[in-house]
Nucleic acid binder design. Sequence first.
DNA 1: ACACACACGTGATTC
DNA 2: TGAATCACGTGTGTG
Lengths: 234, 234
Amino acid sequence: MENYWDNIHQIDDYSWGGLEETFSGYYDSSSPDGTQSAAASKNIVSERNRRKKLNDRLFALRAVVPNISKMDKASIIKDAIDYIQTLHEQEQMIKLELDELESRKMEPETLDMCQETEVFMSMERSKRIRSDQVFDPSGSWMYPIEILELNVEYVGEKIVLVNLKCSKRRDTIVKLCEVFESLKLNIVTATISAFPERLLNTLFIQAEKEDIDTLKMQIETAISALNHPQPITM
Amino acid sequence: MENYWDNIHQIDDYSWGGLEETFSGYYDSSSPDGTQSAAASKNIVSERNRRKKLNDRLFALRAVVPNISKMDKASIIKDAIDYIQTLHEQEQMIKLELDELESRKMEPETLDMCQETEVFMSMERSKRIRSDQVFDPSGSWMYPIEILELNVEYVGEKIVLVNLKCSKRRDTIVKLCEVFESLKLNIVTATISAFPERLLNTLFIQAEKEDIDTLKMQIETAISALNHPQPITM
DNA sequence: ACACACACGTGATTC
DNA sequence: TGAATCACGTGTGTG
């Protein structure tokens, strides 16, 4: 059992105040003046204090680092280093995760109210969208969007009505909004209705020169591309 | 300028392999056998290695801790301790913040798809809702919901149509859903439509025994209660 | 016996 | 000068 380390402090403390007096006249044969020995004793006690402080700091370092097995001086420092590196990695992971969480809600900054609003507003603002990588790299909440019905048709001058019915799963609406935002359409109005197992997405968009079929295909490919990257992690 | 610490390694390395040979026959008057001196030299080099390892560890520790001013051995350990404690506090803060963020989306656990879906689904499940404290304790994104129009009327047997028009601000939809979820209504269908500056919320609820006016007042008070707790932090 | 870890006193160096 | 820090060799205790 590790005896020496746990007793170091007591040893140091006990030998703390009792030696400097006995040291008077220890090595005084070198100089006639008592100044040197006095200075030596000063240096001794100073050095003792320094050692004690260092050991106390090491002791405190051991206290803030969990899972310490080896009580070695060097091992304590090593464990502290490893622990700090672990914390660094955790911090980066958490920051990444938090960024992704916020990028879902806060991305367009002014509307982060909800997602279909976001879809709608994407007509006016075109800030930092970075909608190229729509899929989340975290691999979490990846549930595929099942397209049950998709109609794209002209309903007026240059107004196209998009009607999408799909299954209601995790984050379906969020991902749908990402899809429509990534397509950078001129959305006039977006409406999402929720039913027990279905999700109805109706949006009017102002078409510039797009073909109906290409637009429909764009939507399909965007959704399927959003389904693919990660199958299902959990 | 701190000379000694940055040069310690070089000094230690240079004095590393040159002294053990010159030490043969240094204090050999105690024993006739050369075993003791050999053991002493072994001990010396071993101790040297120990010190070097410890200094290397300390050097590495200094490397992983940012903002090191004092190059003291003790100060390095102290800074490491403070840094670890800082990381601990940060970790706790981030965990708290992340819990709050997740409690918004993941609260009803099965629907965390989006918010109006959540409102709708609250008819079927009544899990851990804890919808009593709707306001966020973080104090962030607190934008008041401005009610522009609120109609509550019967449209059938026991079906009540709620029509709410309000301003579109930050998290308006999210908070609206929280409101309707907190009221624990039997929502049949919820529809939210987004317009440039307005938000239209239409939902059909199955009324048990509620009075129209009380329901309307409940909605109003819930929204105003959600507006009140924090004025605007930023 | 042997390796390892430590505290100690000491001289040197720096500010 | 003088206080502070360091590396070093050494003795001691432990496994």
